[in-house]
Amino acid sequence: MEQGEKLRKLKEIKRKALICFQCGVCVGSCPVAFVNEKYNPRRILRNFLFNQSPPQLNLSNLPWLCLHCYACLERCPQNIGLSEVMFKIQHLQFLNGEIPSSFLNAVKQIIKTGRVSPVTPITERRREQLNLPKIETETGVEELKKIIKETGLKKLLFSQEEEKRSG
């Protein structure tokens, strides 16, 4: 599925990996790497140098730990923009079906309600206490669903589900 897209992404990422001259400023800047030795964004990118097609990543959940805080992007002396590359790596993982279920559930939440966090009775009570306007529920959701379908995300999500069910 989506093999062409995968190879294209892989090539883009590899190009960045080729430019990297291994100074480690990204890792030194990374709050995740500071507390979690397993996570080393430099090494994640470097792995792509040797990643042949078809892409088999087996990176487990590691790339999804990126906070996208952009500290590495600001400091990289070779302008690699690792934070942005990480989005591409995550995208590739998503295409490979390697997306953590918590992410998948959160995406579904957005599609269903238009919001990343649910409106609960507690929410409503609190807002009332604070004299805040009542929440219009499910506004814009129809349009959002249409966009998700138009841009192809729905299809991608659907095939993920299929794969998960069959695999």
């Binding site: 100074c23 400023v25 990204c26 890792v27 030194g28 800047s29 990374c30 080393n40 500290a71 400091r75």
Partner: peptide, 19 residues
Amino acid sequence: KPAEISENPLTKNLTIYCE
């Protein structure tokens, strides 16, 4: 390549963060 240096405001010592 060090990512950043921070200064302890009291001792004026410096901490270097680096891989």
